[in-house]
Design a protein around this nucleic acid. Sequence first.
DNA 1: GTGGTCTAGACCACG
DNA 2: GTGGTCTAGACCACA
Lengths: 128, 128, 128, 128
Amino acid sequence: MYITLDLESEEPIYTQLKHQVIAGIAKKELSPGEALPSVRSLAADLGINLHTVNKAYQQLKQEGFILIHRQKGVVVNPDGVPKADEGYWSELTSKISPLIAEAVCRDVSEEEFQKLCSQIYAGFQTKE
Amino acid sequence: MYITLDLESEEPIYTQLKHQVIAGIAKKELSPGEALPSVRSLAADLGINLHTVNKAYQQLKQEGFILIHRQKGVVVNPDGVPKADEGYWSELTSKISPLIAEAVCRDVSEEEFQKLCSQIYAGFQTKE
Amino acid sequence: MYITLDLESEEPIYTQLKHQVIAGIAKKELSPGEALPSVRSLAADLGINLHTVNKAYQQLKQEGFILIHRQKGVVVNPDGVPKADEGYWSELTSKISPLIAEAVCRDVSEEEFQKLCSQIYAGFQTKE
Amino acid sequence: MYITLDLESEEPIYTQLKHQVIAGIAKKELSPGEALPSVRSLAADLGINLHTVNKAYQQLKQEGFILIHRQKGVVVNPDGVPKADEGYWSELTSKISPLIAEAVCRDVSEEEFQKLCSQIYAGFQTKE
DNA sequence: GTGGTCTAGACCACG
DNA sequence: GTGGTCTAGACCACA
């Protein structure tokens, strides 16, 4: 499980980190119950601030992706990620809507859009 | 064309405003060449600062959605919105990928995801 | 002598008008002593505000390109345009310098730059 | 890298600031990757508002001269400035044409004009 | 500490 | 009346 960050990106580092962990779980590179690096060691490996890693982990914990034990360290949630609920769907809708709106404006057909989504979905089925 | 803002949201106001204008164009509620409210009047209507409106307008102008004339005010780009180019596709991919990764983690099937996109697409074909 | 304005341009209309008159004189399409349309008729022809034409004319008069008589109307300065003086050179330098600075940054060689200037110069020698 | 502004000038302060930064890059006083002062410190040094500095920086970023990082501050684009493209040339032409038109009116020969450009070009080859 | 966002209020250029 | 510019001062997100 490699993590690559773009320190130049507009996207906050902690967000990138979250996305990479989530992507790792999606690709099954990280299995339920599997241990993740400690805040300290990950921060050192990536050359970033402790606070940044901690913020990412706390949010991942908050959203049910991981568990943080004081002693045992950080592990991928052994019970799996919480299934999609109503809150998730509404949040997803509000995040995708603006993207689709812009796509419509730019004359991107629904087929083209769906094709892109399919390709991305496929990328998570196998290990990239 | 009604605009509704959530002043409490984490999403910056100017971003919400941009999204609403883009959605309006997607839904054909705003036609090419049609005039938009002036910076000042829209700010007054929405109860926000004129600089916030201006920031949204400036970015919409930058991205080719609207034109801003010193005197005539603001109009939807009469030539239509620039078509999807390479930069747009890569940007779109990087925005959608994390959403799909999370969907995969939450056991949302590709069919379910595609269905949501279809619904949203449909919402832009007719006036909501 | 045709005048074409771009009402969508960022450049103020009165500035465009000035430039067109100056270009006309440069191309000898307008000869010293030749009459120009009155403020009123030019504004009507171009479909713009009286004040706009007036502002352009006043500045052209100020800079010695034209004369404005209350009775005889507006004429190209019969004595020709004032020759380049020190003030002109320093003003020209301050206007060109930023353009050349950007050209240098963009790896435009002096030869390429001079070639462009030559082409533009040539365009004023003959009637376009 | 010294910056001098004329607060009385008709030219907006943020434009002057942009030109000075571009000139600094042209003269190699600012190297790719080199850090620029923070918005706040530069504003304090120059005795102007931070928003004015910010506007200049944002536009320089937009045009590819600099990069702005949330934390690391502002740096000259390490990849260098984007090369001249078609849009640049047409923009440059429209900016230079009126200057050459006026030069022609004032009996400035092409040789004199080219000489001035050469001198300015030379000024950017060495540190002034 | 950095830049990002938002507000409030001013004056000017343009037409 | 429009947008453009500038100021002053506030709070927040990020690292």
